[in-house]
Deep mutational scan, measured.
Amino acid sequence: KELVLALYDYQEKSPREVTMKKGDILTLLNSTNKDWWKVEVNGRQGFVPAAYVKKL
């Protein structure tokens, strides 16, 4: 599985998104969309802005 690092805090704005804190390590589930990547964090799956994370 591929991991990404949260570069910034992000507060979810819809049920399809997830909240993350700067420094969190997230599991990358899908990065086919250039703007929104699907990740898993704390057992929850959802989208975060691709610009807010970096592949490890």
Rank of each mutant, 00 (worst) to 15 (best):
residue 1 K to Y: 14
residue 1 K to T: 12
residue 1 K to C: 12
residue 1 K to Q: 13
residue 2 E to P: 09
residue 2 E to S: 10
residue 2 E to F: 12
residue 3 L to I: 10
residue 3 L to R: 11
residue 4 V to L: 13
residue 4 V to D: 00
residue 4 V to I: 09
residue 4 V to W: 09
residue 5 L to M: 15
residue 5 L to A: 07
residue 5 L to W: 07
residue 6 A to P: 01
residue 6 A to M: 02
residue 6 A to L: 02
residue 6 A to H: 01
residue 6 A to E: 00
residue 6 A to K: 01
residue 7 L to F: 04
residue 7 L to I: 10
residue 7 L to M: 11
residue 8 Y to Q: 13
residue 8 Y to N: 09
residue 8 Y to A: 13
residue 8 Y to T: 10
residue 9 D to N: 09
residue 9 D to A: 07
residue 10 Y to K: 01
residue 10 Y to F: 08
residue 10 Y to E: 01
residue 10 Y to S: 01
residue 11 Q to T: 15
residue 11 Q to N: 14
residue 12 E to R: 12
residue 12 E to D: 05
residue 12 E to A: 13
residue 13 K to T: 14
residue 14 S to V: 05
residue 14 S to F: 07
residue 14 S to D: 12
residue 14 S to P: 05
residue 14 S to T: 12
residue 14 S to C: 09
residue 15 P to A: 13
residue 15 P to W: 11
residue 15 P to T: 11
residue 15 P to C: 09
residue 15 P to K: 12
residue 15 P to D: 14
residue 15 P to I: 12
residue 15 P to Q: 11
residue 15 P to M: 10
residue 16 R to F: 15
residue 16 R to N: 15
residue 16 R to Y: 14
residue 16 R to I: 14
residue 16 R to T: 13
residue 16 R to A: 14
residue 16 R to D: 13
residue 17 E to I: 04
residue 17 E to F: 07
residue 17 E to A: 05
residue 17 E to M: 06
residue 17 E to L: 05
residue 18 V to M: 10
residue 18 V to T: 06
residue 18 V to S: 02
residue 18 V to H: 03
residue 19 T to N: 07
residue 19 T to Q: 05
residue 19 T to I: 03
residue 19 T to W: 04
residue 20 M to N: 00
residue 20 M to C: 07
residue 20 M to A: 02
residue 20 M to Y: 02
residue 20 M to Q: 02
residue 20 M to F: 11
residue 21 K to P: 01
residue 21 K to M: 10
residue 21 K to Y: 12
residue 22 K to Y: 05
residue 23 G to I: 00
residue 23 G to L: 03
residue 23 G to H: 05
residue 23 G to P: 00
residue 24 D to W: 12
residue 24 D to G: 04
residue 24 D to Q: 15
residue 24 D to E: 12
residue 25 I to P: 02
residue 25 I to H: 06
residue 25 I to C: 06
residue 26 L to D: 00
residue 26 L to H: 03
residue 26 L to N: 01
residue 26 L to F: 06
residue 26 L to T: 01
residue 26 L to K: 00
residue 26 L to E: 00
residue 27 T to K: 09
residue 27 T to R: 14
residue 27 T to C: 10
residue 28 L to Q: 01
residue 28 L to W: 01
residue 28 L to R: 01
residue 28 L to A: 02
residue 28 L to Y: 02
residue 28 L to P: 01
residue 29 L to V: 12
residue 29 L to D: 02
residue 29 L to C: 07
residue 29 L to W: 07
residue 29 L to K: 04
residue 30 N to L: 09
residue 30 N to A: 11
residue 30 N to F: 07
residue 30 N to Q: 12
residue 30 N to S: 13
residue 31 S to T: 11
residue 31 S to Q: 11
residue 31 S to K: 08
residue 31 S to E: 14
residue 32 T to S: 15
residue 32 T to W: 09
residue 32 T to G: 11
residue 33 N to F: 09
residue 33 N to H: 12
residue 33 N to D: 15
residue 33 N to P: 05
residue 34 K to L: 10
residue 36 W to N: 02
residue 36 W to H: 03
residue 36 W to K: 02
residue 36 W to I: 04
residue 36 W to P: 00
residue 37 W to G: 00
residue 37 W to P: 01
residue 37 W to Y: 08
residue 38 K to Q: 13
residue 38 K to F: 15
residue 39 V to E: 00
residue 39 V to S: 00
residue 40 E to I: 08
residue 40 E to T: 06
residue 40 E to V: 07
residue 41 V to G: 14
residue 41 V to K: 15
residue 41 V to C: 10
residue 41 V to I: 15
residue 41 V to Q: 12
residue 42 N to G: 14
residue 42 N to Q: 11
residue 42 N to C: 10
residue 42 N to E: 12
residue 42 N to F: 09
residue 42 N to M: 10
residue 42 N to H: 12
residue 42 N to I: 06
residue 43 G to K: 06
residue 44 R to Y: 06
residue 44 R to K: 12
residue 44 R to A: 07
residue 44 R to S: 06
residue 45 Q to Y: 08
residue 45 Q to F: 08
residue 45 Q to W: 08
residue 46 G to V: 04
residue 46 G to W: 03
residue 46 G to N: 01
residue 47 F to E: 04
residue 47 F to L: 09
residue 47 F to Q: 04
residue 47 F to D: 04
residue 48 V to N: 00
residue 48 V to H: 00
residue 48 V to S: 00
residue 48 V to R: 00
residue 48 V to P: 00
residue 49 P to L: 04
residue 49 P to A: 02
residue 49 P to R: 03
residue 50 A to S: 14
residue 50 A to I: 03
residue 50 A to W: 01
residue 50 A to E: 04
residue 51 A to R: 13
residue 51 A to Q: 14
residue 51 A to Y: 11
residue 51 A to K: 13
residue 51 A to P: 08
residue 52 Y to H: 09
residue 52 Y to P: 01
residue 52 Y to E: 03
residue 52 Y to T: 10
residue 53 V to K: 00
residue 53 V to R: 00
residue 53 V to Y: 01
residue 54 K to D: 10
residue 54 K to S: 12
residue 54 K to T: 14
residue 54 K to C: 13
residue 55 K to D: 06
residue 55 K to V: 14
residue 55 K to M: 14
residue 56 L to K: 04
residue 56 L to W: 08
residue 56 L to P: 04
residue 56 L to R: 03
